[in-house]
Design a protein around this nucleic acid. Structure first.
Lengths: 108, 108
DNA sequence: TTTAGTAGTCATGTTTTTTTGACTTATTGT
DNA sequence: ACAATAAGTCAAAAAAACATGACTACTAAA
């Protein structure tokens, strides 16, 4: 399925919105890498073990649609495309930092 | 399926761990309500529109297993069962508060 | 010309998650 | 006795998410 979403119920709180935006098998990992540096498709594919093109592709597309990442096409040969945090995406940096401090959360 | 989880890859960061703990259609909503007050099953079922018994039941069970909620059986007639935040669950309160401040995150 | 790299899409299939409806046990109200 | 509430369980079906392999388009190097 090519990223079909049915009947979104309105988010009751930002936490829920965040959870929804980053839910999916590869999105948190992608976003975490994006916090550190701009991403390129092929490099992502090599870095994220076990992920496949299709999944990364649709995850990136969704992160873009949600306004967390910008897709930048640098017109040069060979083709160079970068995914970078948007301003909205950057708002999440302190949240991630706060979570880094909560080591108790790591346990599963 | 009775909550089978296969091959958990190690979480690369607490944010990812949090996302995983609260991933699922109803868990964020349940947890958000639990932040405000202890929960009871039937009341949850009435409050969360569109949710069904089975889903709530397994979501609660998972939140318990993850150590975010405690199930308290109050031995009285009629049977009274409450779900309350654990200490670990309470660690997430500041995270949720921080997110409440980020109104930009609400947009979908 | 063949191979390789970047950046994907498409159709299909598998797996996981979520929903549905029937059923359970115990207590209370009419 | 009968219906209702609380708190669920179970098996099966439906829906959503994820993976696979083939394929596209362009560029560059051997």
């Amino acid at each position: 399925m090519t990223t079909k979403k049915a009947e979104e119920s309105p988010d009751t709180c930002p936490a829920q919105a965040l959870l929804k935006m980053l839910s999916g098998k590869w999105k948190p990992e992608i976003f975490r890498l994006a916090l550190a540096a701009p991403l390129r498709f092929s490099s992502l594919l090599r870095q994220i073990e076990g992920a496949n093109k299709q999944s990364l592709s649709s995850a990136l597309k969704e992160l873009e649609e949600q306004g967390l990442l910008d897709k930048i096409t640098i017109q040069q040969k060979p083709l160079h495309i970068e995914y970078r945090l948007t301003e909205k995406g950057k708002l999440l940096i302190p949240v991630f930092q706060q979570l880094e401090g909560l080591s108790a959360i790591k346990a599963a």
